[in-house]
């Protein structure tokens, strides 16, 4: 009975999973944890893991909020592509104000999110379908902007978003951390988080209480769009170019996965941004582990899928019931009288 109660703690499973993965790394190659400070910048595998997971973490922050309202945002990968295309083309134009270009990128995210959110909350369309539209059409739009090319640019200032460093850490890590703190403050220092959870748990009752459910649902898609736009700029800056076909491809699925690994239900309700980040780190650390352990990287996807299924099953109350039943039977065989008195 005790073991099963331990499972119920929301933090335990994701944290243990992450710890196990890190432990595997420690055993496989102790230098995984080696950090080095050089030229005013921190280097090491751990920093790499954080850096690589930045875009996914950004998406996952927005996705957590969307999923908490019972929705889903499939379009974030496409939003990354559009943001990248817009920024890259602006960089090649006569505009030379970086802040203006960043604002334009953010604006793309807001518009995309506003469209998604509008379809979901004001037209009442299922979130999967509403965001599927932009997922399909979005890459077409990005290609249209790029005229079918990969648009590259030479602008060290913009590129520093992706490759530079702030306070000795890669700038994507710092930006992501900043957005995470901002988002966490936004939902937990105000009543926004409570309203988002209430809207996800019971939208009808929430609107009867006077919570502006529609506006809240709409705004989480806008936030998700914004997060995707930031991720899009990081990816674009990182490769010095916008690739409409491949930028952020399937990243929305990783983000959804991270949220689920963090213990959130796709049906909506409770969410936790820190747990989501742990989910992101699990995914990225796993990828790194696979590479470090000398397994051919082609096994990456296969192993990932098996771990997803394992985590899903571990979270399933039915499997826990089956395990409990199994132990109960075993227990019963040992001492039937005790069990009878218990039940």
């Amino acid at each position: 009975m005790r073991t099963i109660q331990l499972f119920d703690s929301r933090f335990l499973l994701p944290v243990v999973a992450l710890a196990l993965i890190l432990l595997t790394n420690l055993i496989l190659s102790p230098e995984f944890f080696h950090l080095e400070f050089k030229d005013g910048r921190l280097y090491g595998s751990l920093v790499d893991v954080l850096n690589r997971s930045a875009p996914c973490a950004l998406l996952a922050i927005g996705m957590s909020l969307v999923i908490a309202t019972g929705g889903i945002d499939l379009s974030v990968g496409a939003v990354i592509a559009i943001t990248g295309a817009v920024c890259a083309n602006l960089l090649n134009s006569s505009i030379d104000s970086i802040s203006l270009i960043v604002l334009a990128g953010l604006f793309v995210g807001v518009v995309a999110g506003a469209v998604n959110g509008g379809l979901v909350s004001f037209f009442g369309i299922q979130p999967i379908v509403a965001t599927l539209v932009l997922m399909v059409a979005g890459r077409g739009i990005a290609q249209l902007i790029n005229d079918g090319q990969i648009v590259t640019f030479q602008n060290p200032a913009f590129a520093s978003i992706g490759v530079g460093s702030i306070f000795g850490l890669p700038s994507p890590v710092v930006i992501t951390l900043g957005i995470f703190l901002l988002a966490q403050a936004f939902v937990r220092l105000t009543a926004m988080g409570l309203f988002i959870e209430a809207s996800g748990c019971n939208p009808k009752a929430s609107s009867y209480i006077g919570i502006p459910v529609r506006t809240i649902k709409w705004s989480v898609y806008v936030m998700s769009g914004l997060c995707a736009a930031v991720a899009g700029m990081i990816i674009t800056a990182d490769i010095h170019g916008a690739d409409a076909n491949n930028a952020g491809l399937w990243l929305e699925l990783d983000a959804i996965l991270a949220v689920v690994l963090g213990g959130a239900s796709l049906a909506g309700g409770r969410f936790s941004l820190p747990l989501t980040l742990i989910g992101v780190l699990i995914i990225q650390a796993m990828t790194t582990t696979i590479i470090m352990s000398g397994i051919d990287p082609k096994f990456n996807l296969l192993i990932k899928s098996l771990i997803i299924v394992t985590v899903l099953l571990l979270q399933s109350p039915i499997l826990r019931g089956q395990i409990r039943g199994f132990f109960a039977r075993k227990h019963k065989a040992e001492n039937s009288a005790v069990v009878e008195s218990q039940s």
């Binding site: 889903i72 959804i256 997803i308 299924v309 899903l312």
Partner: peptide
């Protein structure tokens, strides 16, 4: 296990 089709078939897609 009453898992959502979306997430199960997503795992299936990766697998």
């Amino acid at each position: 296990y009453k898992l959502q089709p979306f997430i199960v078939t997503l795992a299936g897609m990766f697998f």
